[in-house]
């Protein structure tokens, strides 16, 4: 029983990291309809920016902030000067996916050139152990969960209660109509990529902390799980991505316990297939339409 409860706790940690990444990813798609497959590479680049600063002696959380800032600026520039240019010239959605793969490769190779393909690790402490009932966390893990919760609440507040959030939702639903209504959609798109890029960068650093030693290719496989979480919840829907992250985070840890660690991925994607069979547009698809929680 204690291992089961521990697994649930571990699932929450995995979900916390996954939530930050998948909400950022799904926001990019929701606002601009771009399936940015270079997302994991931007995460990686942010992780290495943070690594350089950490190596120079800065505290890991300052470095995480710098990684988020890098992710924000880089993603915004990436959209404005690459994806938006292709979209303006009429490149199809599939074409943009290919462009994003190419961009991802370029980023990957540049990271290798700058930082080498070797394994590196952050200088950080796991902190002391905290017992919460049967759950045991380190202060580092609790900090990660806390950051994730704060990020999710912030996303919710922005989307639901601010002018910017309303403008983002309007742009997502119909950009030209929003523009006709006086919304500066280009600025809104920039801001959306800044926010989602910050989550991308932050997720990159936290993911690298989580796997402990990392290389320029370590975060590639994580993209599949990020996309799965976004799709489970309903692609383009931040609340769906949060829910998807929670479901996948718990499912993979519990699968390791109940079934077999070798089949963690299989269980996660089996779950994805089942959800899509029952609700082809994701768990929150109907709810999203009714309540207009499309970002």
């Amino acid at each position: 029983m204690s291992v089961l409860i521990s697994s649930i706790g571990f699932g929450l940690i995995s979900a916390a990291i996954l939530a930050i990444a998948s909400v950022g990813f799904t926001m990019q798609f929701g606002i601009t309809s771009i399936l940015n497959l270079a997302y994991a590479d931007v995460m990686t680049a942010a992780a290495f920016v943070a690594y350089s600063l950490n190596k120079a002696g800065l505290d890991i959380w300052v470095c995480a902030g710098a990684g988020a800032l890098f992710g924000a600026v880089f993603s915004m520039l990436l959209n404005r000067f690459v994806y938006a240019q292709f979209a303006r010239r009429g490149t199809s959605a599939v074409g943009l996916v290919i462009v994003s793969i190419g961009i991802g490769l370029i980023i990957q190779y540049v990271v290798v050139i700058i930082w080498s393909p070797n394994f590196v690790s952050y200088r950080l402490s796991q902190g002391s152990t905290v017992q919460l009932g049967s759950l045991v966390f380190t202060t580092l893990q609790l900090t990660v969960i806390g950051i994730s919760v704060v990020t999710m609440i912030a996303v919710h507040l922005v989307l639901a209660y601010t002018k910017l959030g309303r403008a983002m939702r309007a742009t997502a639903v119909n950009a030209s109509l929003a523009r006709d209504c006086g919304i500066a959609t280009n600025r809104i798109v920039d801001l959306a990529w800044l926010i989602s890029g910050a989550m991308c960068g932050l997720a990159g650093v936290i993911f690298a902390m989580s796997i402990i030693s990392f290389t320029p290719s370590s975060e590639q496989g994580f993209l599949v799980v990020v996309i799965a979480a976004a799709v489970v919840g309903g692609i383009g829907k931040p609340y769906g991505a949060m829910l998807g992250a929670l479901v996948l985070g718990l499912a993979t840890e519990l699968a390791a316990l109940v079934i077999n660690p070798a089949y963690k991925d299989v269980v996660a994607f089996l779950l994805l297939a089942i959800v899509l069979l029952i609700r082809p547009r994701g768990i929150l698809s109907g709810l999203a339409t009714r309540e207009e929680v499309v970002a």
Binding site: S6, I17, S210, E253, L254, A256, K264
Partner: peptide, 17 residues
């Protein structure tokens, strides 16, 4: 006797076992 799925972001449950 643990057979691990490679390159996951967490093995905490496996470690607990």
């Amino acid at each position: 006797n643990q057979k691990l799925a490679l390159d996951q972001n967490s093995y905490r449950t496996e470690v607990a076992q």
